[in-house]
Design a binder for these strands. Sequence first.
DNA 1: ATGAAAGCGCTAACAA
DNA 2: TTGTTAGCGCTTTCAT
Lengths: 337, 337
Amino acid sequence: MIRIKDIAQRAGVSATTVSNVIHGNTRKVSQATIDKINRIIEETNYVPSMGARLLAGNGSRIIGVIVGTEERFREEKLQDPFTGSILGKIETELSRRGYYMMFHMSSGMEENCQLASAWNVEGLLTIGISAEDNLEIRRLSRAPVVSIDVYYGKRAIPNVGLDDFSGGYEMAKYLLKKGHRRILFLTPWDVGVDKARWEGVQKALREYGVERIEECRQLMPCAHEERMELHRRNLEKYRRYTALFFSSDYYAAEGIQFLHDEGIRVPEELSVVGFDNNSYATLIRPALTTVAQDVREKGWQAVDMLMKLIENGGEEGVKTQTKLPIRIVERESVRQL
Amino acid sequence: MIRIKDIAQRAGVSATTVSNVIHGNTRKVSQATIDKINRIIEETNYVPSMGARLLAGNGSRIIGVIVGTEERFREEKLQDPFTGSILGKIETELSRRGYYMMFHMSSGMEENCQLASAWNVEGLLTIGISAEDNLEIRRLSRAPVVSIDVYYGKRAIPNVGLDDFSGGYEMAKYLLKKGHRRILFLTPWDVGVDKARWEGVQKALREYGVERIEECRQLMPCAHEERMELHRRNLEKYRRYTALFFSSDYYAAEGIQFLHDEGIRVPEELSVVGFDNNSYATLIRPALTTVAQDVREKGWQAVDMLMKLIENGGEEGVKTQTKLPIRIVERESVRQL
DNA sequence: ATGAAAGCGCTAACAA
DNA sequence: TTGTTAGCGCTTTCAT
């Protein structure tokens, strides 16, 4: 491993000068020395020791990316196209800006803080972590934290989210305009994005004078088998609706296949819509009408916000709450009544 | 940030003693001191500075995980369930063993070596990197390297793979037994796993006396749109076959939908099979008959092999070539002729 | 325009 | 049983 000292020796100068050249403090270094040092750096493929940089008080250039998950879904979490997709974008952006990405799937809070402080990360990006845990992370971390898709109460940390409310609202309105009145919103969660989506749905239903709105939502289990079990039990109930609005495309695709297996034709007998517009939406038949979000943009925004917080050394003057827009993508899974 | 020195001060001992206790070199430390130090460590939430550890010549406890990808597919790469799934398993295993995972998607070789040497990673795991690049990485890296799903020529590095040949062979035989003779193997690649799968297919076809075997393979473009374009152009050709064997479930699912859109019924008019047994296989209708691989096992094996190489300090006595078994999963996408 | 030296937190060899 | 000390590679302050 080649060190600054080695370069200095070769160039016949001191380590300080080499360090200065590397950091561009070249005001008082002769051009000849600069060139010589740069040449040697090139030739020797010098790579600075991050350990030493870190110890000397420089930034680690590490961004910790934490994906929260329940322990039992830990190994499946990354299979979901949303997580995969946003991670891909985040890594790309981080790399482009010269940062390293330390990746961790968290089940507990200690590990996260452990990671953050052991490596002196310059920033933290969280995905799928609850509001409370995010607040806790931020409390314990010196580095700025940006969360993705979190809904906060009074106290909030920088966050990049989606206009989930409008997503629910617009899609429900779309269905209502198509003549649907018996709409069932299916979701595994009563919090966060799914809650916001449901609130949007409710607003649209109210506007159209739909009654007994509380009957328009069905909570589902997270585990595949239990969910299918629920569907089987609920088949007769589903028949009483004209449209099923799943809170994500995967659930919608799964739902369409379930209905298909039960001999119920989509959209002729029952319309189905989803949320996300990921690969499942285009793969399934009928192709899924869904609420589209730009996941790559979300990843980009999150990294960008984090970088601004790092550069700025604080939150003043930085926009710390972003809500990306949604749009309805019409395909073939909804019938005009 | 709390340091060893601080703990030492509180405990009224020297930093060395604290360090010794931390590392379990407690043969010559009194129980009282041990307890006191441990208590203080607990209380203060001490987290060692990895920078300092690193500099002091200790391991970084970082494993670099490098996912290779063409630049243009960079942001989609993680969407594919295989990559997501194996990364999830790898992270879980690494975490469990107390390692940190530095994640990088690589387009060039320098970056990889950069990452490895800057952070003094203790090991490297590569996914989707070519044989040549893997050899290069291993040449340039002091740390052990384990690749996943790579086929090497003479010179090889530790690798965890799949019995792709048998996968192709068994599936082709399955189709042949079902009476199919006009089988088309569709794949984007003529190298690596896809080549091995194709060789397996060829063997089975030969055993059944199928002629003009070279006409039984169709190379496809990687980009979705170009691939669909190819399918459209080739529709009449496909009709002349009785079974389409796609080299991955995603392509198979996409193919089934394409055929569906063209009014060709699967499996009544044309049988379709895939490879991987991922979420697409169960989601699609007809449910896909496919070659199953245990991705989590693959991830586990890769981490395990790497750990053995690290602990062992070399390759002697470590099994460095693993081929996981495949098995055929029969669903509904193949018709008995 | 360049260099010497101290210090970052930790480890390990050696001393006491 | 515990402590002293040198050193890991880099940065930065202060001299020269």
